[in-house]
């Protein structure tokens, strides 16, 4: 019973992170490129920035967020190591 719930919590977190992953790269950098490119900071179009740099920052933050939240979920369900 407990294990199923742990797995569901895990899947929910993974699903949420994958949505962010998709939106930051495919969403902002490719599909929504023209729309976001209307915003510019000193000649740097925001859609172009997401495609070349912004998405990478989001990916890094996302993995650390996932690792942190998973450690919390592990503890809540008493399945942490050691």
């Amino acid at each position: 019973m407990r294990k199923t719930t742990y797995w569901q919590d895990n899947l929910r977190l993974v699903g949420l992170c994958l949505v962010v992953w998709f939106v930051a790269s495919f969403g902002f950098g490719i599909l929504g490129l023209d729309w976001l490119n209307q915003i510019e900071i000193n000649g740097l179009q925001i859609g172009f920035w997401f495609a070349q740099q912004g998405s990478i920052y989001v990916f890094v933050a996302l993995i650390f967020f996932y690792a942190w939240r998973m450690a919390k979920i592990d503890r809540e369900h008493g399945v942490e190591e050691d």
């Binding site: 992170c17 790269s25 950098g29 495609a51 998405s55 990916f59 993995i63 690792a67």
Partner: peptide, 18 residues
Amino acid sequence: GSVYLMGWTGGYVLLALL
């Protein structure tokens, strides 16, 4: 060239999560 920047980093998200 963005395909390489996003493609060769975004894979780590999949790797870490899945």
